[in-house]
Each structure stands twice: as C-alpha cells, then as structure tokens.
Design a protein around this nucleic acid. Sequence first.
DNA 1: CTGTTAGCGCATTCAG
DNA 2: CTGAATGCGCTAACAG
Lengths: 349, 349
Amino acid sequence: MAKKYERKQAPVIAGAAKSVTLIDVARVAGVAPMTVSRALNRPELVRSDTQRKVIEAVRATGYVPNMLAGGLASSKSHLVAILLPTIANSIFSDTVQALMDGLTTSGYQTLLGLTGYSTSREEALVEAILGRRPDGIVLAGTSHTDATIERLTKAKIPVVEIWDLTDNPIDMVIGFSHEKVGVAVARHLIRKGYQRFGIVSVDDPRGLRRCESLKNELAKHGIVDTSFEVLPAPATLQGGREGLTRILASSSPEIVVCSSDTLAQGVLAEAASRGLNVPRDVAVMGFGDLNTAAHVCPALSTVRVDGATIGKNAAEALLTRFAAESGYEGERLNVRIDTGFTIVDRESA
Amino acid sequence: MAKKYERKQAPVIAGAAKSVTLIDVARVAGVAPMTVSRALNRPELVRSDTQRKVIEAVRATGYVPNMLAGGLASSKSHLVAILLPTIANSIFSDTVQALMDGLTTSGYQTLLGLTGYSTSREEALVEAILGRRPDGIVLAGTSHTDATIERLTKAKIPVVEIWDLTDNPIDMVIGFSHEKVGVAVARHLIRKGYQRFGIVSVDDPRGLRRCESLKNELAKHGIVDTSFEVLPAPATLQGGREGLTRILASSSPEIVVCSSDTLAQGVLAEAASRGLNVPRDVAVMGFGDLNTAAHVCPALSTVRVDGATIGKNAAEALLTRFAAESGYEGERLNVRIDTGFTIVDRESA
DNA sequence: CTGTTAGCGCATTCAG
DNA sequence: CTGAATGCGCTAACAG
C-alpha cells in the first residue's frame, strides 16, 4: 500500500518543477515527513543515524524549509519587526546592528519599517507588519497613536520601545530620558560659564523634547533670551548651516546646542565658512555618538548615547521572552532599562 | 444545514481567544470567506454593497489578515529581502530609503540582512531568507559564493545586485564601475597637478577595488611610489586618523584619497590635530555622498554617488517584474543600469 | 458577482 | 525514538 503522505500526483508539467518539500526529503531519506521535520528542528529527539540520512537527503534534494508553512503550523514566525523613523544619518545604526546581531544568532529574521517620524505612518506599518505575525516588535520612541497601542496590545507579542523612557510602556522600555538630557546639558554648560545660548533642532519629537527641556532649565537659571530654531527632519548638514545662519541673524550666542551630531557638524561647517573660530568665537554642542562627533572636530562637545547597549538589551529581552513563552516559563519579565548618557567635552575627548 | 465553512468548534477556553480569521469576518458580514478575501484583495471583483459589509465586519472584528497563510496559499509573500554589508556610517542609507519607499507604497515589506562584508555570512543569510519565500531580493555587490549564486538562481525570483556592475549578473544589476571611479579620480587629480599621493582604504571589496584601480592608473602615468594603507572595515573616523598617521610616517603626499567619506573625515580630523592646513599642506578626497562630505569641509573633494537613484531604480525593476509574473506579461526586462558618479571638487561644492 | 472544494507545506498531537 | 492523522488561515480554480 502506498504511503499516505506521498503526494497525490507527481508534477505533470516538466518545466514547472514544484519546489522541493519535506515530503520529497522524506521519500529520499526513507523516513516519514515528521521525522525530517524533527531532524531539522529538534535533532536531539532523533537517532543520530536517522539524522544523518535526513541531512544527506536534504543536501541531495536542495531542500529549503518553507517558513511560511512552518510559521502557519506552529504560530511561530521567527520574525522580529523593527520600526525606525529613518536610517539616514542614523543615530540608530549601532542599535540596529547590535539588535540584529543578537537576533540573527538565535535564528530570528528582521523586518524593517521606516516611519519618517510620522505616528500615522507608524500606525499603518504596524498594522501591515502584524499581518506577518512577528514574534516580537521593536519601536523607536514611546509616542504612538491610540490605534497603534491597541493593536500592539491585542497582538499579545513582546514589544520593546527603545531610545526613550515612559511611565506607561506598552510592554518593555529600554532607553533614557530626553528631558534629563536637556537638563543635564543646561546645568553642565552653565557651570562652565556660558550665558548666551542658541539652540538648533530638527522637527523630531525626541530632539525637540531635549531642546525644550534645555531651554526650560536655562530659564530656571535666569537665562531667558535663548534663540531656538527648528528645521524639518531629517537632520542634514545643510540644515545645520541654515540653523546657524538663522541664529546669527538675531543673536550672538557663546554656544550653539544642536539636537544631533549631524546638525552640529553642519553648524561647524557654516561657522568655518564664516571664518568663525570654534570654540573661541562660538562653541558647538551635539548629541549622539562619539564616533561621529568629537573625533571629527576636537572643538565639538556632545552627549554620548550608547546605542549598541540599547540594541543588545533589546535583543536579550526579546529572546528571554520567547524562551519563556515556549514553556521554560520563568517569572514574567518587566524590562525597564535606563541606559543613561554621558556628556563628552572637548577637553575630555 | 450549517454552512460548510463554519469552524468545527467554537473556542472553548475563554482566555485563549483565538485570533480572528477570515471565517469570523465572513460570518459577521454574512458572506462566504472567499468573498471576504476578494473584497480585501481584489475589490474590483466585488459589488460595492458587499464590499461595504465586509469592510464593516473587518472593523467590527479587528481582523488582521494572516500573511503567512495568504503567502502559503498564493505563493506570493509580498516580501523583499535586502542584504547589505552594514548599516553603520552607511553610504547605503539613501539607497535603502528610496528602495523601501518604492516597495512599501506597493504593499511590499522588507526583510533586512547584514552580511558584515562576508560572503559566507551572505550565503547563510540567503539560505535562511529564501525559506521565507521572498518575492524578490536585493544584494549589495556582485561578488558572491558559488552556493549563493546557485541558490538564488534556483529560487527563480527577481534578484537585483546594486552598487556595482558586472558582466555576469545573477539577474539584474544597478550600479557603477568601481574601477572607473579609480581611473577617473586618478586622471582628475593628475590633471590638477598632484604628483604625490597617499591612499587610505578600509578592507571592503568595493573600496579596495576603487583604490587599487586608482593606484594602477597612477602607475600608468608614471606615479609609482604611492603609499597605500588598508584598515579593517567598517570605516570609522578613528580609522581615518590612524590611516593618515601611517601614511605620514613614511611619506608626505600632496593629497590623500580615501575609500569613503567617513574615512576622509577622520583624515581631516587627524590633519587638524596635527596643525596641518587642508588643502594647503595636504588635500583630502573622499567617496560617497555630498551630504556627508563637501558640506562639512569645503576643503574636501569627493566622488558623489547617487544612492537614491539606485534604490529607486531597484524598486521599479522589482515591481515591474512582479507585475509581469502576475500575468501582465510584457517583454522580459533585462535591467542593467550604470548610474555613474560625479567628482565634486572643493571649488565646485 | 459569489460560493464551494481542495489543497499550499509544515508542526502539533497523539499512537505506537 | 518514529509514524499517521489533522488543521493552521488563506486563495486558486472552478461552478453556479
């Protein structure tokens, strides 16, 4: 009697070779399809000689497991989605690299979505992405539409919000307080004796919060005439040049603080082309990562954020959750990591 | 008699609410599941009042289509994979942005893979990714292992190799010749009167090819004592500083050519900290995109590559192929686009 | 225009 | 340790 799991009919059209499936491998190996599945996914449950036969058959047939089918059957997609505003000039690149390193090592793949700093685009992306049944999702920021939050909550998958903190996370949060950055920068610079400030920010929610917090803290110290220029996102060098130009049109600050390093470098370029000496004529402060800032211009100060740590922690948090939900149930995690930040001065760089 | 497509049994366990499916929507809308599927995917085949009922039921139930199931049934995943060496300091960011813009608009999602400049890692990623049955795949570069090429060929999906050219593409190619970049830079700089060159490159295949081509062309013009320093990938500012340090230890070039803008900026930083005037004491030339180079330092020249055009063309090529394979069969495309490059001088910036 | 039937390729669940 | 039956959620291909 024919084995039950044989294909109902062999391919008829010669050219249209159906792709090879578990069943084909099973036939070649002389075992049941289920055994092939186990040999591939849980080798410890299979005798080693059976294992060898299967591996051999896989190679012989050129079999590539269909993860759509596997995911459908097992409700595990081995997919993690990452939503970022943009990857241009990205302060997120270290984070993404570290996150993907961690996930790839454990057999997860990464779906990327770019929101362009728009929560409505984020909403649309989240809806589309959830259709792919990812096992987890990572979002930049903690500000989302109600619909996004609701869908994410109902999806019942691990969610990590990164690069910010909040008291009402959807699930897990790994980041730092942008308000604290503003306050810390204000106090730091006041302590160093600065009195006249300029601020250049792009229209990005977190950048604006840093800069507004800075401005507020300055006001608390009696510094109220701070010029504040906002440029359209994303940050570009051209934006920085434009920002300084506008600032200088109406004031003459001792220091210009920027919402990102990219912007700060644009300010440096504009200063150079105006023959201004940095930091003697005007000092410049950025935000982001040492690699893109202090090294380029020893005259530049910056706020250093450890993006790689954020990514690494996010990967670990997700993987732990995945393991927990697979039955190695430990106690429910409640991940909230404040990664902090460091102010890097030109003297200390 | 009960409709055939009703679920065999309603959920028993109250808490473990099964996610809502097509069948649930169909029941609420009072139509067959197939009609819901059509209303969602091919609305033009459905009467508008039926359509309305379905939409209403979708909203009422909070239905999110399961693309794993849809993909399995239709052999269309609406997924495109992109493989890049890294996203750090990435000259690819414009390309990725443009590519994703084009694909997202047409309902495709993007799987990202990072190869770290390793063809063997690329091979492993390709195998894993093909399991997801992507509708298309984009690879940075034209250099791959034999196994990668074989798998990709057998997968019978559109493949786009970008940021390089070759006479033996797997399928489609969109990029430019790195050898020509080297030659063009050499001729350009010789014409401007430079005689003593230094070269700093990271250990990235395309960067090295540009620099080796430059060195060869210089040799053809009788310039043979060119110092050439290679640093580990990826490009960093620190690498650029180190590169200039090594160059100056053994020579005193009039100009230092770098394999990327990031490296060039590192060279600028090192020059500054040595009190060297750029370009008077030493000129610097980079490679990449205007936004990261000439704007920062008017003293820097660079080779400008239009990454966004590469991404846009790649998206269009893929989408056209997808349409063709769905039956709107036009003539078979044979995409090979030389996007070229431009040398941007400090005078012209 | 709408409904029915029959899988897509795999893993879960239970038998042996 | 291995095998058989069943269905994940959806859509192609036909019927009406």
